[in-house]
Design a protein around this nucleic acid. Structure first.
Lengths: 207, 207
DNA sequence: TGTAAAACAGGATGATTGACCTGTTTAGGA
DNA sequence: TCCTAAACAGGTCAATCATCCTGTTTTACA
């Protein structure tokens, strides 16, 4: 049916599988963080990147495979960059937390929009939809909390049975951040996050 | 083309528009809370209720109209029932908060699954997708926080400029709950919420 | 009782989407 | 150099979904 002239397939002179894979994951991470997993179509993703369906399918046979790669490679890295590293570098726990919260609040204010926490967004959207997704994100939360807890003063066994003060406080910090950003997303203002952290910091420095 | 026998349309003997509308909103609320707005198809909703497309379209011409009705009628009512009313009835703020948190934790444990906060789920999913949705949910959060704040001790103007201790604490409480449930959803355990509240309560009673 | 509107039945449709399939080009090892 | 597999091009396809359309039944009201 088709004629004589072969289809002209132009592409980059040199292949760069690792680079393309990274570019896809990066692009998908931004789209997922902005619009969510379900509301991001891989068709739009391919179009915006100018890549073919074949190239995409070669690196990620399914949308779920892409989602897992985004969570493992980029969401985990985002937590590492904005939370783990600053907390570990800080002179003490409280100033480390203060630095992270104020930095995030600053970013929200200068962005003009609040997209939410990349991990929190996907955790709320996908945890009950796919158990593989859920497990990956559960692990990120666990590490996040553990790193905070290890920098906190560990109380003696004066604590009530079955309770760990450092672990509890780490959970409270992450919950405050996650919930504060969720409310900030609903109001499109940093105000809820700012108020929440201001009160938590006040409670912590008073103790 | 079709023959002589008219199509047999069976339906309930008597119309009950208000009852059907309520039933649709109830059914949609549960589906949205369990699976999210985007992952709930109105086709499945109609099938599970056994109602026709005509009946559905008569009450809700678009999915967005249904979503707004669910938020206004049922999500707001859920916050009212599980938060506002108990807080107002409680002898004091702290015991009121303790009752609500422990009650929710109990429910999570006995349910065997964690679907998350109906308001938080939709806020994270839809706030950046539709501004009408966002405004409705922002209003619910505002009322939620205001009712908590009004039962809290209002500090004198010793507070730093531009800060309201009661409003800040109310924000922290709602953030702790919202974030704690988000983490609980990721782990499918009440543990993150339990730890978060245990620590917050401890900080509050110590102050 | 007559009549117009509300309430509902049941399907049709166009748009979107994720996955797939065949073919071509590049790369790496024998 | 040859030859196999990786990397990529470009289009197809079936399924899903929200919405719409035509027609029938019930209800409110004069």
């Amino acid at each position: 049916m088709n004629g004589e002239e072969g289809s002209v397939q132009r592409r980059a002179e040199r292949n760069d599988p690792h680079g393309l894979r990274t570019a896809i994951v990066d692009s998908a991470f931004e789209a997922f963080a902005a619009d969510g997993f379900g509301s991001t179509s891989i068709g739009d993703l391919k179009a915006s990147m100018g890549i073919s369906g074949g190239a995409f399918a070669h690196h990620f046979p399914t949308k779920k495979a892409l989602g897992l790669a985004v969570i493992r490679d980029r969401v985990a890295a985002a937590i590492e960059t904005t939370w783990i590293d600053p907390i570990r570098r800080a002179p003490d726990a409280l100033s480390g937390l203060d630095g992270v919260f104020l930095s995030v609040i600053d970013t929200l204010d200068s962005n003009g929009k609040v997209s939410g926490c990349p991990l929190g967004n996907l955790a709320v959207e996908l945890s009950r939809q796919d158990d593989d997704f859920r497990r990956e994100m559960e692990a990120i939360y666990a590490r996040w909390r553990a790193v905070i807890a290890e920098r906190l003063p560990h109380r003696a066994p004066e604590d009530p049975a079955g309770s760990d003060g450092a672990a509890d406080l780490a959970a409270l910090v992450v919950a405050t951040f996650t919930g504060g950003i969720a409310m900030a997303k609903a109001s499109q203002t940093s105000e809820p996050l700012r108020r929440s952290w201001q009160m938590l910091r006040s409670l912590l420095s008073a103790g």
